[in-house]
Each structure stands twice: as C-alpha cells, then as structure tokens.
C-alpha cells in the first residue's frame, strides 16, 4: 500500500472562459450531482423527504428550484440534485452523476441568439424564463439547458463531449458576434 493521491481534473473543454462579442462562455462547477429517480408512486413521498432534508421539493416538469443547493427536472421520472450531497431517499434510485457532466455557463444579452444556432428550442426569455430547464439535443449531443438568469444560461452535456460542446458554443458565439 502506497501513499497515493489522486488528482482531480476538470472536463476537457479547452481554454475557458472565452468572450466573443457580448457573450462569455465559462466552465461552471455545480458541485455534487445526484440523479433522483423515484420509484412507482413514490414521487410525492420522495419530494417530501427531500424537502424535509434539504428544503427543496421535486420541481415540476421543465422547471428547477434553488435553495442551498438546486434541483432540476431532468427527464422522465428523473431529477438532478446539484450543489449538495444527496440525503438518504429510500423511495428513489439515486446515482452519483458528479463526474458525468460538463457544465458551461453562457452569459450576456444574446444567449437566446447563440443557443438558436445550436438547439431546436425557443430559448428566448419569454418562452424560457428564469427557472425553466429542458432536456434537448445539440448537434448529436443530448444536453440540458437551464435559464439561471435573464442573461444567463447553463448548458450540461456528457463529460466525454466537453471539447465538442465548447467548440460548438464558441462557434455559435462567433457567428452571433459577426452578424
């Protein structure tokens, strides 16, 4: 047995943050991520248990809630808890997803224009207000998009695709800046 230290590395996006025109792309650290998939008929109980433990209930489809940590709807019968360790939730399947995702923050006034180059959804503020979250597709990648502020969007994709994601975002930012 040796004295061993494992060093953590971040998803390989290339150099960030990057600014193009009015928009900035940076890598975020959303802290611990846990997927929560309540079993049949357990969503209510799991929500109550989660609320009791963290103050956060399971939010409705397409929305997220923030408190000490944050929780977002993440798919069919699925939520993602971030920025806090998961409490014990007996009625749900939990998996650690902390290392499974690359998380990028896109900030600036033209977020919807940039994202319009990449995802088949209307992400303008009126259609996708603060607190909205969605699963969608970006050029062959399954992604999650959340509006974290009027001028802020958070994009998550599989960690292994970090480079492709960052490249796709930067190219879209360049085009928006040029037009």
């Amino acid at each position: 047995m040796a004295d061993l230290t494992l060093i953590a590395s971040t998803p390989a996006t290339g150099t960030l943050p990057v600014t193009r025109g009015t928009m900035t792309l940076s890598q975020a650290d959303p802290g611990p991520l846990t997927s929560i998939a309540p079993y049949k008929g357990q969503a209510g109980a799991v929500s109550d248990a989660l609320q009791a433990a963290t103050g956060l209930a399971l939010p409705g489809v397409g929305t997220c809630a923030t408190g000490k940590g944050a929780i977002q709807w993440f798919g069919r019968d699925l939520w993602l808890l971030s920025d806090m360790a998961a409490p014990d939730l007996p009625g749900a399947a939990l998996t650690d997803q902390t290392d499974a995702w690359v998380t990028l923050d896109l900030t600036g006034p033209q977020g919807a224009e940039v994202m319009a180059r990449r995802v088949p959804m209307d992400l303008r503020l009126a259609a996708f207000p603060e607190g909205a979250t969605a699963r969608t597709e970006m050029h062959g990648m399954m992604v999650s998009v959340t509006r974290t502020g009027p001028d802020a969007l958070r994009i998550m994709a599989f960690r292994s695709m970090a480079k492709t994601l960052a490249h796709a975002m930067i190219e879209a930012m360049e085009n928006v800046a040029a037009l």
């Binding site: 489809v61 397409g62 798919g75 069919r76 088949p120 959804m121 969605a134 699963r135 969608t136 597709e137």
Partner: peptide, 11 residues
C-alpha cells in the same frame, strides 16, 4: 407529454 412540442430530431 413531458417536454411539449419538439423537433423530430429529438425522437
């Protein structure tokens, strides 16, 4: 039924 109306490319 969850996500609303979406483009074919997501299906």
């Amino acid at each position: 039924p969850h996500c609303g109306t979406r483009d074919l490319r997501e299906f």
